[in-house]
């Protein structure tokens, strides 16, 4: 049952957001550090969709970028299929790179506007020397285009000739071209029309079934996550506050922040449920609150929460980082 593909341990990323050196000296200011991701540990199992949710500024995208190597981590460790991502060099890294891919948020920025679609999709193939000849590569590109529900003839066009949904399909085709096992999806539908979102999500699920992919799915949209995720991790200010199975999290949220988020989902079923607006805003990560960072917004916070930082408590259903949360 426990077949871990990606294991993240104590991942931390600190950004230096201080002013230039000269300004600091003249204005007598300290260095300002932003703790974007703070000691996050999680594991992603083979074949599942692990979703990371959280408000903007909670560190979702930073985690995604560290996992695929676009950002370096300040601390911590990432294992991909048992191999330490921060250690290997040369040929091993090259082999690893072929095994993970990323789908980006903005389909209007993720495709080089000067390249034809053929060339865009074939780029990973070229880089990893995957097809023997130019015609074999071309054939593979045509297959990929058809796999994501486009016409093989679309390859000769430029990205600007397509709509947002079609572009995202092209981006998916590119991500699939190196036959990866693991795909990081950084809000893949948030830039799309609601009607198109469902098409892209269904395509991604079909591809997962067909190719046995593992997804790390990042989103701020809980209704999208509900549709996609097997397991969900809730981020708050760079900390993972709750991890639980998808259905369990929606049925029985334990962390007060998760409860707050779930209460804010618009009630489309007209059950008459009261939709509570979340109180307050996410605090400034440069100067986070003491103790549990959620305590200023928490309805059940005690004096103890203001002093001590809760660590994750594991249980049957998942883990939760809260002193007061009960299993119900």
């Amino acid at each position: 049952m426990k077949d871990t593909l990606v294991n993240v341990e104590n991942l931390t990323r600190i950004f230096d957001v201080s002013k230039p050196w000269l300004n600091r000296v003249i204005e007598r200011e300290e260095k300002k550090l932003l703790l974007a991701v703070n000691g996050v540990s999680l594991e992603i199992r083979r074949g599942e969709t692990f979703a990371l949710v959280g408000e903007s500024g909670s560190g979702k995208s930073t985690i995604a970028k560290m996992i695929v190597g676009l950002l370096s981590a300040s601390q911590g460790k990432i294992d991909f299929d048992g191999i330490d991502l921060f250690q290997p060099g040369g040929a091993e890294m090259r082999a690893l790179r072929q095994r993970y891919q990323m789908i980006f948020q903005d389909p209007f920025a993720s495709l080089n506007p000067r390249w034809r679609v053929n060339k865009i999709i074939a780029e990973p193939l070229r880089k990893f020397d995957m097809e023997s000849s130019e015609s074999a590569r071309h054939k593979r590109v045509e297959e990929l285009l058809e796999l994501v529900g486009m016409s093989a003839k679309d390859g000769v066009k430029f990205p600007h000739e397509f709509s947002g949904g079609q572009r995202q399909r092209i981006a998916i085709a590119r991500a699939l071209s190196s036959n990866p096992e693991f795909i990081v999806c950084d809000e893949p539908t948030s830039a799309l029309d609601v009607s198109v979102q469902a098409q892209i999500l269904n395509l991604m699920r079909d591809l997962q079934d067909e190719l046995g992919l593992t997804y790390l799915f990042i989103s701020h949209d809980l209704s999208v996550v509900r549709h996609m995720a097997n397991r969900i991790g809730v981020l708050y200010l760079g900390r993972l506050v709750e991890v639980a199975d998808g259905k369990e999290l929606f049925r029985n949220p334990r962390h007060p922040y998760t409860k707050m988020l779930l209460n804010a989902i618009p009630d489309l079923d007209m059950t008459g449920r009261e939709v509570a607006r979340p109180d307050g805003e996410i605090p400034n990560p440069i100067n986070p609150p003491s103790g549990c960072t959620f305590h200023p917004r928490c309805p059940i916070a005690t004096e103890y929460c203001k002093r001590e930082i809760p660590s994750a408590r594991n249980s049957e259903a998942g883990s939760v980082a809260c002193f007061e949360a009960t299993g119900d």
Partner: peptide, 21 residues
């Protein structure tokens, strides 16, 4: 922009990213 990040992701050499992308 994300197309440059996509190229970095597959480990393309910075020189090639500058030249091609």
């Amino acid at each position: 922009k994300e197309y440059v990040q996509a190229a970095r992701l597959i480990g393309l050499h910075p020189f090639l990213i500058m030249l091609r992308h």
